[in-house]
Lab assay of single mutants.
Amino acid sequence: TTFEIRVGDLRITLHNADEEEIRWAEEALRRGIHADEILRTLEERRR
């Protein structure tokens, strides 16, 4: 599944994310964390 998060002009697309990952990514985007860093962190958490 694919889920797109939008916060203002910012956007990130997550693939195969669970609800916790989606909530975490949305909050991180709101705090101004760059999408590349969010994706990198999620990848590390999945390992």
Rank of each mutant, 00 (worst) to 15 (best):
T1H: 13
T1I: 14
T1L: 15
T1Q: 12
T1C: 15
T1N: 14
T1P: 13
T1E: 15
T2D: 15
T2M: 13
T2L: 08
T2R: 09
T2E: 15
F3P: 07
F3K: 15
F3E: 14
F3D: 14
F3A: 15
E4T: 04
E4M: 02
E4A: 01
E4N: 01
E4L: 04
E4S: 01
I5H: 01
I5L: 05
I5V: 09
I5R: 00
I5C: 14
R6W: 15
R6H: 09
R6I: 15
V7C: 10
V7E: 04
V7N: 03
V7P: 00
G8M: 03
G8C: 03
G8N: 03
G8V: 02
G8K: 03
G8S: 02
D9V: 07
D9H: 10
D9T: 12
D9L: 06
D9E: 10
D9I: 13
D9F: 07
L10P: 00
L10I: 12
L10S: 08
R11Y: 12
R11W: 10
R11H: 15
R11Q: 07
R11P: 02
I12Q: 01
I12T: 01
I12E: 01
I12W: 06
T13M: 05
T13L: 06
T13E: 05
L14V: 09
L14F: 05
L14Q: 00
L14A: 00
L14P: 00
L14H: 00
L14M: 04
H15P: 03
H15W: 14
H15R: 06
H15D: 04
H15K: 06
N16I: 04
N16P: 02
N16V: 06
A17V: 14
A17W: 02
D18A: 08
D18G: 07
D18P: 03
D18K: 11
D18F: 12
E19Q: 12
E19K: 10
E19G: 08
E20N: 10
E20Y: 11
E20H: 10
E20P: 06
E21Q: 06
E21N: 02
E21I: 05
E21F: 10
E21R: 01
I22C: 06
I22D: 00
I22N: 01
I22V: 07
I22Y: 06
R23K: 12
R23S: 08
R23C: 04
R23G: 07
R23T: 09
W24H: 02
W24R: 01
W24N: 01
W24P: 00
A25C: 03
A25Q: 00
A25R: 00
E26D: 04
E26P: 00
E27T: 13
A28W: 14
A28Q: 10
A28L: 08
A28K: 06
A28G: 06
A28F: 08
L29S: 02
L29T: 02
L29F: 05
L29C: 04
R30A: 06
R30E: 04
R30K: 11
R30V: 07
R30D: 02
R31L: 09
R31Y: 12
R31V: 06
R31A: 11
R31D: 07
R31F: 13
R31Q: 08
G32S: 03
G32F: 09
G32I: 01
G32W: 04
G32A: 03
G32M: 05
I33Y: 11
I33Q: 06
I33C: 07
I33P: 00
I33W: 14
H34F: 11
H34V: 10
H34K: 09
H34N: 13
A35P: 15
A35D: 03
A35C: 03
A35E: 08
A35M: 03
A35L: 05
A35S: 09
D36Y: 14
D36S: 10
D36H: 09
D36P: 10
D36F: 14
D36N: 07
E37N: 08
E37C: 09
E37M: 13
E37A: 07
E37Q: 08
E37R: 07
I38K: 00
I38V: 09
I38H: 00
I38T: 01
L39A: 03
L39S: 04
L39M: 09
L39C: 10
R40K: 12
R40T: 09
R40N: 09
R40I: 09
T41K: 08
T41S: 09
T41C: 07
T41E: 12
T41W: 13
T41A: 13
T41M: 10
L42K: 00
L42T: 02
L42S: 01
L42E: 00
L42R: 01
L42Y: 03
L42I: 15
L42G: 00
E43K: 11
E43Q: 11
E43Y: 14
E43L: 14
E43D: 11
E44A: 14
E44K: 13
E44W: 13
E44T: 12
E44Y: 14
E44H: 15
R45H: 06
R46H: 08
R46A: 04
R46K: 07
R46D: 03
R46I: 04
R47F: 14
R47D: 07
